[in-house]
Amino acid sequence: PEKLADLQIYRAQLRRILLNSLYFLEIKADGEIFYKIGITTRQIEERIAEIQRDLKQHYSDIVVNLLGLWQHRGNVELYFKHRYKAFNYPIGSLTEYFKFSDVKPVLNDLFEMEAKELSRVELNIIELQSLSPTFLGHLESA
């Protein structure tokens, strides 16, 4: 039972990573330019609208441009935040914003990621709601 519980926890965490898309935005607000990194399972347009609403508390004129969107890359956000922590630009309680004097090296880092092709096991993790004998069989053969 303990090993099965560990497997279920691992599967849930992996599923979360695989379901999330990583996005990178350029934001122009009241004459300032800054960037946002984040993950979402929703349509990016819906997430951008939410970000604009959040920023309205701090800025009046806001333009958001999508610079990149990577499917199945929920695991990269934490690494990005760590790597670029010196450039973090908190806005009130909002913490996933960054200011770069030159964003090109950052974009190069992000665009070096190859597209994530899901394996059969990963597809099963996304699709299955519980551990089935078929899923366990796939894990054993992987």
Rank of each mutant, 00 (worst) to 15 (best):
S101Q: 11
L139S: 05
G74D: 07
L4T: 12
R53N: 09
N88K: 14
G92L: 06
A142H: 15
P133L: 03
D6S: 11
L94Y: 01
L118A: 11
I51A: 09
T134A: 05
R11K: 14
E46G: 01
E140I: 03
H72Q: 08
K104A: 10
Y97E: 06
F24R: 00
P90M: 04
I37N: 05
G92E: 06
E140D: 12
S101H: 07
S130H: 12
I33T: 15
L128S: 14
I48M: 13
D109M: 01
L18T: 12
E77V: 05
N65Y: 12
Y97T: 08
R120E: 15
G38R: 06
L7I: 14
H82V: 09
A49H: 08
P105S: 02
A12R: 13
R11S: 02
R42E: 09
I48Q: 06
S130N: 10
Q43L: 11
H58R: 07
I39Q: 05
Q52W: 03
N75M: 06
Y89A: 11
L131M: 14
V76Y: 04
S119W: 01
L131R: 07
L131N: 03
K56D: 00
S60I: 04
K28I: 06
K3R: 12
N75I: 02
A29K: 04
L18G: 01
E122F: 08
R83A: 04
F80T: 10
Q13E: 05
V63K: 08
P90Q: 09
Q13R: 13
L67N: 08
S130T: 07
G74V: 04
K36Y: 07
L139Q: 07
Y59F: 15
N75C: 04
Y59A: 00
F87N: 15
E50D: 11
I17P: 00
L55I: 03
Y23A: 00
E127L: 12
H58Q: 06
N75E: 15
R120S: 14
S141D: 10
V64Y: 14
H138I: 01
I125Q: 02
R47N: 06
K81L: 04
Q13M: 08
I125K: 00
D30A: 03
L67G: 08
R11M: 06
S130I: 03
L131D: 01
S93K: 10
K104V: 09
R16A: 01
R16L: 03
Q52R: 07
W70A: 05
N65P: 02
I17M: 07
S93Y: 13
T134Y: 15
G31A: 02
G137K: 13
Y79T: 10
T40F: 05
D6T: 10
N75L: 04
Q57G: 10
M113C: 06
P133F: 03
T95P: 00
F135R: 01
M113G: 05
N65M: 04
Y89H: 15
A12S: 13
Y35R: 04
E32Y: 14
I39F: 00
E96S: 03
F98I: 05
I44A: 03
L22I: 05
P133W: 03
P133H: 01
S93G: 10
P133Q: 08
E32Q: 15
S119F: 02
F100M: 01
E114A: 12
E50Y: 08
